[in-house]
Design a protein around this nucleic acid. Structure first.
Lengths: 156, 156
DNA sequence: CTATTAATGGAAATGATTGTCATTAATAAC
DNA sequence: GTTATTAATGACAATCATTTCCATTAATAG
């Protein structure tokens, strides 16, 4: 009996741990996000996987992204236009911690990891202080800089 | 001839500087945001001002908030549910720089300004570095921590 | 005070996301 | 491997925040 998914990354156990099943759609979407450095919207993802898996619907893409966010495999990102973007979360196997620099003109997103070390250090301290003072269980943070990229700046 | 608006804060000139007119709706909304520490959505604002100005429509609220954001009098805030919130931007007259701690359970927002000094220092350096390296004209930044507040944590 | 034109309001349109429900497929039990 | 169980799916409809349209009103210039 053929297994549903090849599970090359060892994700199956993780799905089971959360009480989820491993399915083709979930694997395809994880694969796609694993192999891009873009910040794709649900529709971007739908269009891309539609090329090879025309049977996967947009609704499923949305639901899958929600599941993956819930499992913290994927990070949902909001850059201020009305549509969410998704990127693979960092993991021990694939450390890629970065923050975002967003052009408010063309919505270009630059991932930067310069300065990250000091930022992370400060964030950890802040997180600890905030947790205690406000009794929050902090799960993650968002840092974004907004501005105009060179092209948009020139165009303005 | 009666002037449209009392302009107690000296906003009129600022509107004119941007080529906008000073109107009742704009003044009322600015007043409201000046006197609250809440993070109100467009609809919250509409409902509130509707009590005293039932002739101001929701569409105008949206348009006004866009104008005010454009003038940097108001800051548009996104906390991850599908609706934007607005708060008065900090100004020399009313310095209130803070960042946000957002409960992903109940969407409660805590404004904190602890640790702000170190954060601001680091952010300025980062901003300068990023500006140069990526040729961005950075206009603002967003820092948010996400987690569960005490109540939601207990409930979970 | 009148002319000009931005601003407005209400209704309709848009567009991302979510809900519904009958069908399919992944896993568990045998 | 076969069957039973139940989560996951897909197509469509529904929702809901935000925008667009357009005829009317009101802020400012002259």
């Amino acid at each position: 009996m053929k297994k549903c998914c090849k599970d090359s990354e060892g994700w199956q156990g993780k799905f089971h741990g959360y009480g989820y099943r491993m399915t083709v759609a979930r694997e395809v979407i994880l694969d796609l996000l694993s192999n891009t450095d873009k910040h794709m919207s649900a529709e971007d993802i739908y269009m891309k996987i539609h090329e090879t898996h025309p049977n996967i619907g947009l609704t499923t893409v949305y639901r899958t992204l929600e599941v993956l966010s819930d499992m913290a495999l994927v990070f949902k990102l909001d850059i201020g236009d009305g549509r969410a973007r998704y990127e693979l979360a960092e993991s021990p196997k694939k450390p890629n911690h970065h923050h975002h620099l967003v052009c408010t003109g063309c919505r270009k997103i630059v991932d930067y990891s310069d300065f990250i070390d000091q930022e992370v250090k400060l964030l950890q301290d802040t997180e600890k202080g905030l947790s205690k003072k406000y009794n929050f269980k902090i799960t993650n943070h968002l840092i974004q800089f907004y501005g105009l990229c060179g092209a948009c700046s020139a165009r303005a």
